[in-house]
């Protein structure tokens, strides 16, 4: 087990946002956090690497409680890609190199540069490497963000709506990259998502939030039209098309 979350609660200005969150994740698995706008998906994701401090609960990553680690130590174990990456006058290479920050003392080593080079090759970003990121498109910038998180050498990737505001091609590209990395390397991923069909296509496990707590969780077999209707308030049917589940509102 790579991640074990138990009894996490989070308050925002003494208003309860999340309560009794409990789930776990195995190596090489992708978990999709689903639910309506404002239910606390992003909040939950940010609690995972203690960007937001939960009021109570434990988040064990490889037998260590994230909430008891220093921020830098957390960053060596969890890579986080926010919904929106800001751009600056930096090359993509520099931007990805930033992912080595939690690991370096004073300056980058040849090893760091090699690792960045490998990530770039891994994600097929060779053409972007020396371009300035303030000249990249949204999809390209998102790929650089994921590359940066991978350069952190994390055990767990946290992705906040990685496909929002991307076109179809880029949505598939990004999620292919995530799936490829998770399946082939020593890493797992948690993504918040809005698009149920993309989630079904790429994730191994699903976690539906409603009213700040887990409404349903499990694999695709546990996702029923009733669950989706309860969570989103929209009646749906789930059809199978060439072994991929597809949600259709009715």
């Amino acid at each position: 087990m790579i991640l074990d979350v138990n009894g996490v609660e989070f308050d925002y200005r003494s208003k309860e946002v999340l309560s009794n969150i409990k789930f776990h994740l195995q190596k090489n698995e992708i978990l999709a956090i689903l639910g309506p706008n404002g239910v606390g998906k992003t909040t939950l994701l940010k609690c995972m690497n203690a960007i937001l401090k939960p009021k109570s609960g434990t988040i064990m990553i490889e037998e260590q409680d994230v909430l008891k680690l220093e921020q830098m130590e957390i960053a060596r174990r969890l890579g986080y890609v926010p919904q929106q990456c800001e751009s600056a006058r930096l090359t993509a290479f520099d931007a990805i190199l930033l992912g080595r920050m939690p690991h370096i003392k004073w300056n980058i080593s040849t090893g760091d540069v090699m690792l960045v080079e490998n990530v770039i090759k891994r994600l097929k970003l060779e053409d972007l490497a020396l371009r300035y990121i303030d000249e990249l498109s949204g999809g390209e910038l998102q790929k650089v963000g994921i590359a940066r998180a991978l350069a952190q050498n994390p055990k767990l990737l946290l992705l906040d709506e990685p496909t929002s505001s991307l076109d179809l091609r880029n949505q598939l590209d990004i999620l292919d990259i995530v799936r490829d990395v998770v399946k082939k390397e020593d890493v797992s991923a948690i993504m918040t998502m809005h698009d149920l069909n993309l989630a079904f296509r790429y994730a191994d496990k699903f976690l539906f939030l409603k009213n700040g707590t887990i409404f349903a969780a499990g694999s695709i077999a546990d996702v029923s039209p009733q669950v989706i209707e309860e969570v989103y308030g929209v009646p749906v049917t789930i059809q199978n098309y060439q072994n991929v589940s597809v949600v259709i509102p009715v």
Binding site: K46, N49, I51, E70, Q71, M72, E73, I74, A75, R76, L78, G79, Y80, V81, P82, Q84, C85, E86, A88, L90, D94, A95, L98, G99, M101, P102, G145, R148, A149, Q152, L158
Partner: peptide
């Protein structure tokens, strides 16, 4: 540099 990439990214990088 990390803060230039956004507060959220910087926090994720341990800053």
């Amino acid at each position: 540099n990390a803060i230039d990439a956004g507060d959220e990214t910087a926090k994720g990088l341990g800053v």
